[in-house]
Design a binder for these strands. Sequence first.
DNA 1: GTAACTGCAAAATATTTGCATCCTT
DNA 2: AAGGATGCAAATATTTTGCAGTTAC
Lengths: 140, 140
Amino acid sequence: MNDIRTHTDQILHTKAVRITPMRQLLLDYILTQNQAVGLNELEAEFPKADRITIYRTLKTFEEKGILHSIEQGHSEVQYALCHEECGPEHHVDRHPHFACERCGRIICLEEVFIPRVAIPQGFIQHDVEMTIKGVCGECG
Amino acid sequence: MNDIRTHTDQILHTKAVRITPMRQLLLDYILTQNQAVGLNELEAEFPKADRITIYRTLKTFEEKGILHSIEQGHSEVQYALCHEECGPEHHVDRHPHFACERCGRIICLEEVFIPRVAIPQGFIQHDVEMTIKGVCGECG
DNA sequence: GTAACTGCAAAATATTTGCATCCTT
DNA sequence: AAGGATGCAAATATTTTGCAGTTAC
């Protein structure tokens, strides 16, 4: 327990994000999940917390390189933990995401490398997003 | 001009979608674009058309395999033309999309093949979505 | 002390459904 | 004729901004 808290503060400190109770609370929770989380889930998990503050905390975490966002489909944006090297204006989360059609979970496939594809002449690539849709191991 | 109209009707007929003026209008327009379109663009292009009808037309086109949807980012869903083989419950639009950070256009990279990546044991893959973000040839 | 964070309010944007009427097949 | 499409209305969901009070550093 204390380890998690310590880890949380460490992350916040490393990424130059002010340590506040709200941020500790949210990051603690996200660290225990091994799937991406969305705003609605966090709001349900912490009913006392203000929805807008959670929203802005996620945005801050994304901007500072603690979380990365995943666009899953016609629903809500999901957030998952970043690599350690991520920082402001610098994300290296180039792994695919798996979106389960049954349970709706978004799972980071961190061990899977996204192959670089050829883009047309004159185009500049900054980032890639890859989402695989199907049925996860627990639902299959 | 007549060629486009004929082509439009051909597509509608082939994909078993009833031919109506609204659908001809929208599909005609989409056929002339070589980038993905969104609901707002279509509404602006056809001010007399009902927004909800456009919305449902896009949904129908997607369901019947005429258009496929692209989730670009924290904005609106975009739609682009399908391959000919696409039909209800059967999409084969497995090409990457390029999202330009300057002009916001979504361009289908139809000639680029999405490499198949390894997914964990027990997972079943149904579909892939890949979006490359950067600067397009015209903006670079 | 200062800049940043929080909570409350409110708005802007996007997505979706109901229903009566009209149109395509 | 019958089932599907359209337009009007309205609801739901999602994302975003403003501002005053509070807090971390």
